[in-house]
């Protein structure tokens, strides 16, 4: 699950592109406190000096439910305060590992399709009932990664850094 896609962290919704985010975020922890799900964690010194104190999301443990409570509380604008519509979030993009995915390996499973908050839009089922991600619609919330019954998850969010 980590490896290739975790070279950068998944940030809360509305985050500026990573370099700008690191410069703008004051590490105050307000978004962490605003998150009613305990989804947003705080990176520590062990994650690196430059990211220490920044908000991170480990979607497999707990995804973002797109309640949109964190962007408006950001004092520095590291999260775009004006972001209100969950459809406009671009935290990242879900990527399905077809070799691991049950549905792609001919076992019936539609966990990710069923739980996607943009149901029928960000993840669609092709005509052989296999999930396919629409990169243009996927917001990167990680709910699919969280509910995937395969271990490690056959679908994971690649952090996108486009907010």
């Amino acid at each position: 699950m980590r490896g290739t896609m975790q070279s950068r962290f998944l940030r809360p919704p509305g985050a500026l592109p990573e370099n700008e985010f690191l410069a703008t975020c004051i590490r105050c922890g307000k978004c962490v406190q605003a998150c009613p799900y305990g989804t947003i964690k705080t990176a520590s010194l062990l994650d690196g000096v430059t990211v220490m104190g920044t908000p991170v999301i480990y979607a497999r443990d707990r995804p973002c439910y797109l309640c949109m409570k964190c962007p408006p509380v950001c004092p520095s604008g590291a999260l775009k305060r004006g972001l209100k519509e969950k459809e406009q979030v671009r935290m990242g993009t879900a990527v399905i590992a077809k070799k691991e995915c049950l549905a792609w390996q001919e076992t019936l499973c539609r966990s990710c399709f069923d739980d996607c908050p943009l149901i029928g839009e960000a993840i669609i089922m092709d005509n052989e009932l296999r999930p396919v991600v629409d990169d243009k619609k996927c917001v990167g919330c990680g709910i699919c990664e969280n509910v995937c019954p395969v271990d490690p998850a056959a679908v994971a969010v690649r952090p996108g850094g486009k907010g």
């Binding site: 307000k30 406190q33 605003a34 509380v73 004092p75």
Partner: peptide, 9 residues
């Protein structure tokens, strides 16, 4: 009240 001593609301 939310926030920390960096920034408080």
């Amino acid at each position: 009240i939310t926030g920390t001593l960096y920034s408080l609301a």
